[in-house]
């Protein structure tokens, strides 16, 4: 997902970029950013996750920060921002305080992010909305903050592979002049028409469970083996082997 987000960011390929990883968590996407040669800083609200990121020795600088409270970054600090599976958490209100209401937190988040980003640049958020209303709320908050852009849905017809990306532009959006168009969501190149990875394996297993002639477990060989075993152990009353051993009883009538 981080790779896809980077692809959507559409950064100039031969320049060093300084990215903001919003909700970096344990540094999973940070490792990918390191690999790809980006310089980054990460924010997250969970100290425990940041500790894990420290143990992983990621390259970026980490901050403990609630993104709903806004960022304290100076204007134009970052060349881009990515955030993987974070935005939906902004929709929870923890207290009844007015600053804790989702619209307020969203607008605070987007306005401070907008100013922290360079002009032109992009921000890509992957998130899991639970309804269309939530997408509406988030995009309207982003637009109010001055962002352009929109929602990109990858694999819209698949239940599992469906991924919602919010692609926001500051100014021209980067990646050359006149590049304001929202990128297309991935459509056709899904694996095996609309199936996710491992789907095929599951299918195979399901087929094996259901249909197909399974070999009976308690066939004649098995019975003979068991009887032999019992005799070796000295069990009494083990029936003798005969031509009737292990035969099916036919229906009487």
């Amino acid at each position: 997902m981080t790779y896809r987000a980077l692809e959507l960011l559409n950064l100039p390929p031969d320049e060093l970029s300084f990215l903001l990883d919003i909700g970096c968590g344990s540094g999973l996407s940070g490792e990918i950013l390191d690999e790809e040669g980006y310089i980054w800083a990460g924010v997250d609200i969970a100290p425990s996750m940041l500790e894990v990121a420290l143990e992983r020795e990621v390259e970026g600088d980490l901050f403990l920060q609630d993104i709903g409270q806004g960022f304290g970054f100076r204007p134009g600090s970052f060349d881009g921002a990515i955030s993987i599976s974070v935005l939906q958490w902004l929709l929870n209100a923890e207290t009844s305080h007015p600053t804790s209401s989702p619209p307020h937190r969203l607008s605070r988040f987007f306005t401070t992010l907008h100013s922290a980003l360079r002009n032109p640049s992009r921000a890509v958020f992957q998130f899991y909305p639970s309804s269309d209303d939530q997408i509406q709320l988030i995009t309207s908050a982003a637009q109010k903050a001055g962002f352009g852009g929109g929602v990109v849905v990858d694999y819209p017809n698949s239940n599992k592979a469906r991924k919602v990306f919010l692609v926001l532009f500051v100014g021209g959006g980067g990646g050359g002049a006149g590049h304001q168009q929202v990128p297309e969501g991935l459509q056709g190149e899904e694996r095996e028409d609309g199936k996710v990875m491992f789907e095929r394996r599951r299918e195979r297993e399901a087929k094996r469970e259901k249909g197909g002639k399974r070999k009976g477990v308690k066939d004649k060989d098995w019975i003979l083996k068991k009887k032999e075993l019992y005799r070796q152990r000295g069990k009494e009353g083990v029936p003798r082997d005969s031509k009737f051993t292990g035969r099916k009883r036919r229906a009487v009538f």
Binding site: G70, T99, R108
Partner: peptide, 15 residues
């Protein structure tokens, strides 16, 4: 602490 700055604010400080 631990190399991570704590940028959290109290409720009355949130803009």
């Amino acid at each position: 602490s631990n190399g991570i700055p704590n940028m959290l604010l109290a409720e009355h400080e949130i803009g």
